[in-house]
Design a protein around this nucleic acid. Structure first.
Lengths: 210, 210
DNA sequence: TAGATTGTTAATCGATTAACAATC
DNA sequence: TAGATTGTTAATCGATTAACAATC
């Protein structure tokens, strides 16, 4: 049943996959060739049981008595997450946040290729960001028709985020990585919202309740 | 038992508090004065039961038959999260990421006051960011001794993040909001790491498994 | 072979949902 | 009063942990 998932994998499991992947990368860089669920668990602060349980959603990657081959497991996780297949992605909203995201996120190491940047402000059009020229928002539709981006980063003011998201879905975009300070509800698309404000408020709560 | 929590509130509950707070703010802005767990649940895509269960960790804020007063509940959530008590916070690492965080995050609306920015690069020292002058990292200790920041934003290269975090904890910092691309392990402090890379990989997985 | 460690099944734990008495 | 909705207890559901046979 190698690399076959028999059923829908739960959200908590999916969210742990990148952590496993990053740790495996690090071990590999450090020249470690073999490891075990026990060791991985110790490094990640979780039980060995959970790691074995999680991995078993996708196949059998270890050997009884020997544990896991680091490189092999890293490669399998890479496949599972879908990293080798770079999905075309665009970015909408080239303000300060869009600039930092486009220039600092390592898209190509995380499964995406940034192929277009759009903004509504005339003064930004034509400027270069992350080796791409910022295009006017009016060209979104024809660009999507031609280049078929599968995903989009949204760095928009909260007033326009929902409307732009809906247009993008109409144009065939299936995944949204939303940095706009609002929730977005669209049918037929995966949305991951990065709520920095919520994250900061959570820290406030925790510090007041130590 | 108003505003008293009888026991440790679970992590999932704490993480939902900011969402409730933001929605209540929005309702209040729109002139809504009364609401119910049923309506809140519909807006947030969760059960009315869960909202009542969550709120009951902190007290009784509603009235049978009438529901909740929007303003009152918003104010209570504000208190619960700790927003009115602005905690002094510093930012370490004034590169492009630190710049965007310092200038775009609304600290004062989220329970914190940014009182200092530090960097190691001589060419950045003295420049202004978010109305503060960037200070040399050497002054971290004396600054902390004098101003007693409770929390810190870390926007550092992953090589130095752990070491800086440990120093900060020694200097009395109790909460870390970590944007560095690595995990941080420190005793005696709350750490919230914003793993943008993990978030993007999760999107990759989901798009490959629609 | 003996020791180690997997993948998986069973047991436990915790979180979510449902139900309902209290009461506005 | 009748309808609505709370806060809370009980039931359900799902996720984590423990246990263990299989086997390297």
């Amino acid at each position: 049943m190698h690399l076959m998932q028999k059923y829908e994998v739960s959200v908590p499991v999916v969210r742990r996959l990148p952590r496993y992947y990053r740790l495996l990368q690090e071990l590999e860089r450090n020249g470690v060739t073999r490891t075990s669920s026990r060791e991985l668990g110790k490094r990640l602060g979780m039980t060995a049981s959970q790691i074995r349980q999680d991995l078993s959603c996708f196949g059998c990657f270890g050997r009884q008595g020997c544990g896991y081959a680091v490189k092999e497991l890293r490669e399998n996780l890479e496949q599972i997450i879908g990293l080798p297949d770079l999905l075309p992605m665009i970015l909408v909203g080239a303000g300060s946040l869009g600039k930092v995201v486009s220039e600092n996120v390592r898209f190509e190491e995380r499964g995406f290729r940034l192929i277009g940047i759009f903004d509504i402000k005339p003064e930004l059009i034509g400027k270069r960001l992350a080796e791409l020229q910022i295009q006017p928002i009016e060209e979104l539709e024809s660009f999507c028709a031609a280049k078929k981006p599968v995903a989009a980063v949204l760095c928009l003011p909260k007033e326009s985020a929902q409307a732009v998201a809906e247009r993008l879905v109409l144009f065939g975009v299936r995944g949204l990585w939303n940095f706009s300070h609002c929730d977005i509800a669209v049918e037929q698309a995966e949305v991951i919202t990065v709520h920095l404000d919520d994250s900061l408020m959570t820290l406030s709560y925790k510090l007041h309740n130590l």
